[in-house]
Each structure stands twice: as structure tokens, then as C-alpha cells.
């Protein structure tokens, strides 16, 4: 009953691109299949309206998933991003709303970004210096922040964000042009891509996640790298809050409920190894697109009233299939304990 005993050969029918490491291609084909399929059912799905909205909708998930990818690559996890978003939205709203302090966005936005980075740093300190396992630390932060946000808001909503902010989030910075969220998401993805795949810092993050001892011997500071990843995540949550929350009708304590689950699902479906060190940003971005597609596709399929109650099941089974498929395909190629 050793490791060797069960190793099975790869079935011939499984195409090689589907083996681990080729997750991006698999996701691309899956997305293409979904798009072609829904196009045949209802061609109106492929309108500029739907597509524009799809990108706007995926923006916050994409921005935050970039940060969480960094964290997961170092072998840690952050489950507090949803609560962080609610907390930061409350801070943003309190500072810049006409009905609250009515500060200039030039003060409010940097302050929100700083607050986000600070929460991320707190997570990072707990995990690195406090040596609390990240799933525990961020679970605690998630619970506590949600309670704190509800308490802070005292049961009322915040409305009246500055017009510049809501206009930028809904229509774009200028009269034409893409909404702010899409621009910021594209920028974030680009910077993170450069960082991860073309800069020494990215290699160091992989190294820490891939083999802690080896990274230490190579002279890398595990503490500093992990701390950096958590701080970046906090900062990116703040960024996502700024570009996405003004689209919503009001700021309430329930913002970002289950957001952490969505983000982590995207990271995992995107092929990033939960034990760190393996995975690419491209897969995560494609996974975000796929997960964002599910809701509108189900609407356009007209699955009917009782079908709508199966929507969550469809989503769940898709996630299950996505995380199992390429592992099942790559069995015998590489195994993890």
C-alpha cells in the first residue's frame, strides 16, 4: 500500500493539453464552448450590452483574485476579503458621502486605500510574526470585521457618494470609454502578471510557496514576502471597493457577503495549488471570467422557475468538475501527498 501501488497510467483518451500546467487552455476551451453554446441558444447574449456588463461585473473579483493569488502562491490563504470589502466600503462612505463627513475624494480615496493596506498588513503580521495559520487568522478577521462593520453602520445605509465616483464606476472616467472598474482590473492584472512572471519578486513568491527551507537557504525573507502578499491583497480589496461599490444602490453592512468564497473558488479553479508554489495568473483570470459567466448564462438559458432553484447546484457541480477534471486527467503524471 505504498505510494507506488496505485499509480495509474494516463488514459490515452485524455488530451495532453488538459494535463496540469495546461489549465489555461482547458479553461479557454470551456469558456469558448459556453459562449458558442449560449450563442446558439440565444444569439442576443453576444451584444455589447451583455459583454460590457460582464466585464464590469468581473472587475472586483479579478482585482481581488490577483491579490489572493499572490497569497496562495506563498502557501497561505486569505478568507477575509469579503468582510474587508464591507468594512472599507463603510469607511469610504463615511468619509466622502454628502450626508456624512463630505470630505473630498482626494482625501477619502487615499485613506481607503491606506486602510485596506493596513488591514492586509494586520493579516500579514498575524500570519508571519504571530505565526497564526493564515486560515485561522483570516477567519478570525473575517468574523470580527463583519461584526465591527455592522456595529459601525448602526443599522443605516450610506447613500450620496460624490457624483464623480458613481459616474466613473458606472459610465467611465470620460464621456465614452470603459468604466473605471474594467480599466483598473486590466491594469491590476497586467502589473501582477509582470510581477509574478517577469520580476525577481514574483520568483521569490513562488520560491517561498514551493519550498520554504530552500527559499530560506537562498536568502529570501519568508516573513517579508508573505507580509507583502497580504498587504497587497488588502490594498487591492480597497481598490475593488472604490471602483465597484459606487455601482451599487447603497452602502450597507451586508456588502461582500460570500465574496471570499467566490474569489478562492476562482483561484482554485484557475489552477493555483492551495499548498503554494504552483499556478499562473492567467488561469485565475480565466476562472474569474468563467465564474462570472455562470449567472447570466443561466438567465439566458431560460431554465424556468423550478430550474432557477437548481442554479446553485449547477454552479457547485461546475466547480467540482473544474477542480477535479485536470487532476483526474493528470493522475500518474504528478501527484501530491
Amino acid at each position: 500500500m505504498g505510494v507506488r501501488g496505485r499509480r495509474t497510467r494516463l488514459p490515452r483518451s485524455v488530451p495532453s493539453w488538459f494535463r496540469s500546467g495546461h489549465r489555461e487552455l482547458g479553461l479557454c476551451l470551456l469558456i469558448a464552448a459556453v459562449l458558442v453554446g449560449i450563442g446558439m441558444v440565444d444569439p442576443r447574449f453576444h451584444s455589447t450590452g451583455t459583454w460590457n456588463d460582464l466585464l464590469v461585473r468581473s472587475a472586483p473579483t479579478m482585482i481581488v483574485a490577483c491579490g489572493v493569488t499572490l497569497v496562495v502562491l506563498t502557501g497561505e490563504i486569505d478568507v477575509s476579503v469579503g468582510s474587508q470589502m464591507a468594512f472599507l466600503a463603510a469607511i469610504l462612505g463615511t468619509m466622502v458621502s454628502r450626508t456624512e463627513w463630505n470630505l473630498s475624494p482626494w482625501i477619502g480615496l487615499p485613506a481607503t486605500l491606506a486602510a485596506g493596506a493596513a488591514i492586509g498588513m494586520l493579516n500579514g503580521i498575524l500570519v508571519t510574526i504571530g505565526r497564526v495559520p493564515s486560515i485561522v487568522a483570516t477567519l478570525g478577521v473575517m468574523t470580527a470585521l463583519r461584526g465591527a462593520t455592522t456595529w459601525m453602520m448602526g443599522g443605516s445605509n450610506i447613500e450620496g457618494l460624490p457624483d464623480a465616483l458613481t459616474r466613473a464606476a458606472k459610465q467611465g472616467l470620460f464621456r465614452a470609454g470603459p468604466p473605471l472598474g474594467v480599466v483598473v482590473a486590466a491594469g491590476t492584472a497586467f502589473v501582477c502578471y509582470l510581477l509574478l512572471h517577469h520580476m525577481p519578486l514574483g520568483r521569490h513568491l513562488y520560491a517561498v510557496g514551493g519550498g520554504r527551507e530552500a527559499a530560506r537557504l537562498a536568502g529570501l525573507s519568508e516573513i517579508r514576502l508573505k507580509w507583502f502578499a497580504f498587504a497587497v491583497t488588502g490594498f487591492l480589496v480597497a481598490l475593488a471597493t472604490i471602483v465597484d461599490v459606487p455601482r451599487l444602490p447603497k452602502i450597507e453592512a451586508g456588502i461582500g457577503v460570500d465574496f471570499e468564497l467566490l474569489v478562492i473558488t476562482c483561484v482554485v479553479v484557475g489552477g493555483v495549488s492551495i499548498s503554494g508554489g504552483r499556478g499562473r495568473l492567467g488561469g485565475v483570470l480565466l476562472a474569474v471570467l468563467l465564474m462570472t459567466l455562470i449567472r447570466p448564462v443561466l438567465t439566458f438559458l431560460e431554465i424556468g422557475e423550478s430550474g432557477e432553484k437548481w442554479a446553485k447546484a449547477v454552479q457547485g457541480v461546475m466547480i467540482l468538475a473544474a477542480v477535479l477534471s485536470d487532476r483526474a486527467a493528470s493522475r500518474g503524471v504528478r501527484r501530491e501527498p
Binding site: L248, P249, D258
Partner: peptide, 10 residues
């Protein structure tokens, strides 16, 4: 149809 977004504003 009937949609079920949960308690999620987005």
C-alpha cells in the same frame, strides 16, 4: 422567471 440572488447586492 424568478431569480434568487440571495442577500447579495451585486
Amino acid at each position: 422567471t424568478i431569480k434568487y440572488p440571495g442577500e447579495n447586492a451585486s
